[in-house]
């Protein structure tokens, strides 16, 4: 009961935090209010996921797995740096989400953006990338059963994820440039980034096609061998908690 109240309080603080950000955003940052508010809201939207991850018990090994997947997708950005836009990040995030759940998917996506930008350059776009990749992982995790069952659906999700990522980043560019959401500019950006969108979608399909099954097998085996991400019994959970 007590826990429930605490949880409720935590979420209501978040609900209050968003309007609380908008108010000073409008009064202090006048002409750049949209840039400030969008950045703040995107950051706040990531907070509940981070908090619940922080409080979850018994995810010691999952923690390491997320670190590995985030590092691998950052490395993927290096390996394919020569081909702009062609990167395995989304594919790796989606695969992680399918095998280890929505929360792991969100964390891998968000952390991949944060970690790789330590090398590729942090900027005001980092929170947007974190949120976009995190969201794509989250949705993949929620659809895990279907995506795992059908290859066609998985590839379709890859295409849609590429398009969605491109559209979300266009939203960022528009808000950032104009200080307001101008539909004409958004349309122009979307049109200008169509080739990118195609590359994103194509790279997702290629990586999911080549690696989807193989990485899935590796992850399944690890799950079995080390018990990562499984519902642990009491003793196992205690054991893992010591890690944290």
């Amino acid at each position: 009961m007590n826990n429930k109240i605490k949880k409720l309080l935590r979420y209501s603080i978040l609900l209050l935090a968003i309007p609380a950000v908008i108010l000073p955003g409008v009064t202090v940052f006048k002409d750049r209010q949209y840039a400030f508010i969008s950045l703040a809201v995107v950051l706040l939207a990531c907070v509940p996921f981070f908090l619940s991850f922080e409080r979850r018990k018994g995810n010691g090994k999952l923690l390491i797995l997320i670190a590995v997947m985030a590092a691998l997708s950052s490395l993927g950005r290096f390996v394919f740096a020569a081909v702009p836009g062609f990167k395995p990040v989304t594919a790796l995030v989606v695969i992680t989400a399918i095998y280890f759940g929505a929360e792991a998917g969100f964390m891998t996506g968000a952390l991949s953006a944060l970690v790789s930008n330590f090398y590729f350059g942090q900027g005001p776009w980092t929170p947007f990338q974190m949120f976009s990749w995190g969201l794509l992982g989250l949705i993949a995790g929620l659809l895990a059963g279907k995506l795992r069952g059908s290859r066609t659906l998985l590839l379709l999700y890859g295409v849609l994820a590429g398009a969605a990522y491109s559209l979300m980043m266009d939203t960022w560019s528009t808000l950032w440039m104009d200080g307001t959401f101008s539909l004409a500019r958004y349309a122009a950006y979307v049109a200008a980034s169509l080739p990118w969108m195609a590359i994103y979608a194509a790279s997702n399909v290629v990586f999911l096609l080549i690696f989807g099954k193989a990485i899935g097998q590796i992850l399944e085996r690890l799950k079995y061998k080390y018990g990562i991400g499984e519902q642990l019994d009491e003793r196992g959970a205690d054991d893992c908690d010591r890690l944290q």
Binding site: E54, L63, A67, V68
Partner: peptide, 11 residues
């Protein structure tokens, strides 16, 4: 603590 552990491991 957990997030920073993941972050430092990934880095």
């Amino acid at each position: 603590p957990k997030l920073s552990l993941v972050l430092s491991m990934a880095l």
